[in-house]
Amino acid sequence: MFDFLDVDWWSLALPFAYISVLAGMLYTFSNIYRKRKASQLANLEPWFPPHLQRQVYSSLLEIAHSDAGEKKTKVPDSVIRAALLRRAVEDIGRIIQVRQAKQALNVLLQRGSVGEDLNQRFQRAEKEIEEELREVVMEANALVPGWGNTIFQSANEMAANAMVRERLDEIQAQTETEKEWWEKRRETIRQDFEKELNDEGQPKVDAKAVISDDDGVLVDSATATPSKKKKGKK
């Protein structure tokens, strides 16, 4: 019995070993390969920076829930509503960015000017923003029934309005420098004009003054032949 098993075992050992090594290699290979791929995907740089407004909103909700029973200041609902609105405004900005990027990206992809990983990052961003919108609408409806229908309308106007005001402020901020520039410029124009007038009106006096100021040695000859000197000076 023992002899029989022992022999059989040994003769089968080689094929078994072969199979197990093969299977092991395949397993490790696929494992490593998949892990690498996953980590590559996960390590793709996100399209957008972290969503600060969303963090604030979630943190406020967290504080509201944990504090509710015990102590001090309750977070008022109005603050949470404001935080959600801020979050919706940020989302609008992101949607606009995604829409703008989409066309350009498609063209670039067709030409092969950008890599596949950029495309993957983008698609992930698109999915994320869709999820985010749904979530915000749900949260809004939970806070105030029916708010989900209008929150993005309001947020849209808020984003656009903020942009208009920013541009207008930029333009209006130039007023002071423009004014200063013009004051100076007008002054120089006026001086030039006066000089011209003086030159035409009383050339002799002007010439004397200029020369005697500039150069003491020349004064004598200058008084003798003022008009000539003036020409020389100019």
Binding site: A38, L41, A42, P46, P50, R54, Q55, V56, S58, S59, L60, E62, I63, R124, K127, E128, E131
Partner: peptide
């Protein structure tokens, strides 16, 4: 896997 960063939201000390 699609949104690994989404599941963990950092709670800010507000």
């Amino acid at each position: 896997m699609a949104q690994p960063a989404d599941d963990i939201i950092e709670i800010l000390p507000l």
